[in-house]
Amino acid sequence: MNRKPDYLAHAVLLLGVVIFIFPLWVAFAGATQSAAAINRGDISLIPRLAGLKIFITAFGFGNAAKGGVPVWHMLLVSLGMALVIAIGKIVISALSAFAIAFFRFPFRMIAFWLIFITLMLPVEVRIIPTYAVMSDFHLINSFTGLTMPLIASATATLLFRQVFLAIPDELVEAAKLDGAGPMRFFFDILLPVSAPNLAALFVILFVYGWNQYLWPLLVATNGKLDPIVLGIVQMITTDQIPQWNLVMAATILAIIPPVLVVVAMQRWFIGGLTEVDK
């Protein structure tokens, strides 16, 4: 095409990109500056090269409000939480969708509706009673408590069911003729066929797990299990003046993993998200 560039489109898109990146750029540039300069209200948009090592220092920076748990520890908790939630949700949803799509068993539709209902019961609407149940089971301040209740997923089950229902009958017949049992069929045929959906779900659920805030706020009370998102918010809401350069460096560190996952897997993610949510 030899037309002149579409200046309007470039202008609008660039403006959009700048609006998204600007706050993050300020956080990045701010992290490299001295705490004193920041507290004077003297934040430069140009990062100080000598200050770049703050991104290393920040790993050891502790959250004073919670007994000094360091940033690296909180990052690990977040990583563990995101992985366990993403993989756990995928596993139990794929299994239950397989059961519901490929078998006829008593109370099948009741099971399906019970799972479906969880879509309508996010933590935000049942804060107190969920907390009470957690403490009855002694799950407060445990990694199990932090992750397991978030593993049920109506969204993932619905998606898998949809994918499984679209599997051609011939494929199932062929597998049966070859003498494959249900689980063999599940692992050798069903899962490979659904690989793109698995990848997309992984991105969505990893981001979901990494970004949890309210749940850890309820369940992690002694600091040992604070994920990074919770820790950073506590760093800026203490009574003392926050050490802004370190807090901003920690913030950048907290943003990198989920953004990397989304960008690296964007091809599956975009196709998958519109598929999953719709």
Partner: peptide, 26 residues
């Protein structure tokens, strides 16, 4: 689906984890 696998024990076991979490925590 038209084509199915037989039995009800296996599917019951397969949905059990999801159902247990749903009942307990939701």
């Amino acid at each position: 689906r038209r084509t199915l696998f037989a039995g009800w024990m296996l599917p019951a076991v397969l949905v059990a984890p999801q159902l247990a979490i749903t009942v307990l925590f939701f």
